[in-house]
């Protein structure tokens, strides 16, 4: 016992009592790391792929800090899993849903229903994540990986706004969306050059097609002209032949 450890009536040191009281209060207050409210609200009101992506990235950060502080909010893993599944990262999503069951066993039936809806092929995969810590190290990159899994549309029209953000048209598993991407100066220059080259190429292609159309029109006109002349000639020939025949007929009649 320390020199200053005054004993209470029950014989316990005062410091220990204070610590015990603090632990009880902490347990009662039930601290949980909050869900990313702003991003959730943005996704719930907009329902765009961009807001889903931002939400997933924010959820991954919240999970990481919550796991470190041991204050995991129920449903956090499941929500992140659903977000990943909606972005096409089904295996990672399955791992997150399994982690939810491991952390909160009461969610088992619900998670099975969600899997059945979003990833029926992975329904049987109910193993716990083999190494949750390693998985969580990957969590941060998973949301960003999903971006690279997306396919740009055949014609990309980059729109760069005043805040140097590129709005890129991408093909998601469901539809095409515009995603905001923050650019560096070099990237911006390269993209603008690329866009200019593409624009020039497109203009050239349009001009070529106009010229080809013009040529085809002229050719068709000439063809029509020659056809008309040919037809006229034949008509003339036929008329002459008819006239000749008529003359011949008249001469024979006179002889008779």
């Amino acid at each position: 016992m320390g020199n200053n450890g005054k004993r209470t009536r029950s014989g316990l040191p005062a410091g220990l009592c204070v610590a015990a009281a603090f632990l009880v209060v902490a347990a009662c207050s039930g601290r949980y790391a909050g869900m990313p409210r702003a991003e959730l609200l943005a996704y719930q009101t907009q329902h765009t792929y961009g807001s889903l992506h931002t939400l997933a990235a924010e959820l991954s950060r919240s999970i990481q800090s919550a796991v470190k502080a041991d204050t995991l909010h129920p449903g956090m893993y499941a929500d992140y899993g659903v977000a990943l599944a909606l972005m096409g990262q089904k295996e990672a999503a399955c791992r997150m849903l399994n982690a939810e069951v491991a952390a909160f066993p009461e969610s088992r039936a619900m998670v099975q229903r969600i899997k059945q809806r979003l990833m029926p092929d992975l329904l049987g995969d109910t193993l716990r994540p083999s190494n949750p810590k390693a998985d969580l190290d990957r969590v941060e990159t998973l949301a960003y990986d999903s971006l690279t899994a997306l396919r740009p549309l055949p014609y990309v029209a980059p729109v760069i706004d005043s805040t140097d953000t590129l709005w890129l048209q991408m093909q998601t598993p469901v539809d095409s969306v515009q995603l905001p991407i923050r650019l560096t100066a070099t990237q911006k220059r390269e993209l603008l050059e690329q866009a200019q080259a593409q624009e020039a190429q497109r203009k050239q292609a349009v001009q070529d097609s106009i010229a080809a159309a013009k040529r085809a029109k002229v050719k068709a006109r000439e063809q029509a002209k020659s056809d008309r002349a040919k037809a006229k000639k034949e008509q003339e020939k036929a008329r002459k032949a008819a006239k000749k025949e008529k003359e011949k007929q008249r001469k024979q009649d006179k002889k008779r």
Binding site: M35, L40, H73, P74, G75, D79, M110, I114, R117
Partner: peptide
């Protein structure tokens, strides 16, 4: 209103599925 209903329940010790999982249900 919908999103903030879960927090007080979670703090009282109930398991409440998150909004994305609830939407799937």
């Amino acid at each position: 209103l919908y999103l903030t209903a879960a927090d007080p329940l979670v703090y009282r010790g109930y398991y409440v599925p998150g909004p994305l999982a609830s939407a799937q249900i």
